[in-house]
Amino acid sequence: MLALLKDVIQRRELLGILVGRNLKIRYKNSALGFFWSLLVPLFMIVIYAVFLHVMRFTTNLPMLVVGIITWQFMSMCLGDSLHAVVGNANLITKSAFPRIMLPLSTVLANFVNFLLSGFVLVVYLLVVRADFAHVAWLPLVMLTHLALATGIALLFSTANVFFRDTEHVVSMLLLAWFFLTPVIYSDAMVLDNTGFPPSLKALFFVNPMTGIITSYRMALMGWANPGWPYLLLSLVASLAVLLAGALLFQRCQDRFGDEL
């Protein structure tokens, strides 16, 4: 565990170069380049806004925008992590370097993208005069989000080395997770629904993304409910995922060279 951390700190230059490589490659040869990381969520927002409107759901555009942009970071990390190790087989089999740099660099490259789209998000929220009363919590929310994304990336980048079925499982898993997380709806819709038993509501908040997205809305839109304990719950769950991911990765990384 400590060895992994030491590797990361000692070889941060490699991490920086890999992050830069990931960003460059993603938009190489595309005319719109970085704007795609804005256009994709924008299209999703438009589609869901129209869908929710047509289906006569009560919705709120800033809430939808915050939800989709923050969800996008998670879904991109998960998707990219599948190829973080497998897609760099030639590096792994031909050179020795801390393998953890590969999933870590895909997460950080997506994080850079997320920060850029987050900047556009903040401009939008200023335009619609959102309430930034609780913005001081934002760093902790982002840290929780980053920890969860890293943990997930470590788990799935490792799993895909040994089981290529992971890719198919992930596309289904992402879809289910998307609807189980308050991305296009609010946590209140679940909490206030008297039809759900309390145990089911508790389960809803075990999903760390519930607390994370709700906390983003608290920090960026001044929402007061359901309160910060949910963020702490998410933080604990995210750190647990991160720990599990790091342990799995450390156990399996020596075998990457033979499997690829």
Binding site: I17, L18, R21, K28, N88, N90, K94, S95
Partner: peptide
């Protein structure tokens, strides 16, 4: 190690970028 010449070079990166990437990997 020269287990394979240019192993780890990324086709979309320039020669310069690949040189620094290879250096960082080592």
């Amino acid at each position: 190690s020269l287990l394979e010449l240019g192993a780890g070079f990324h086709p979309d990166l320039t020669g310069r970028e690949n040189v620094f990437l290879a250096g960082a990997v080592m």
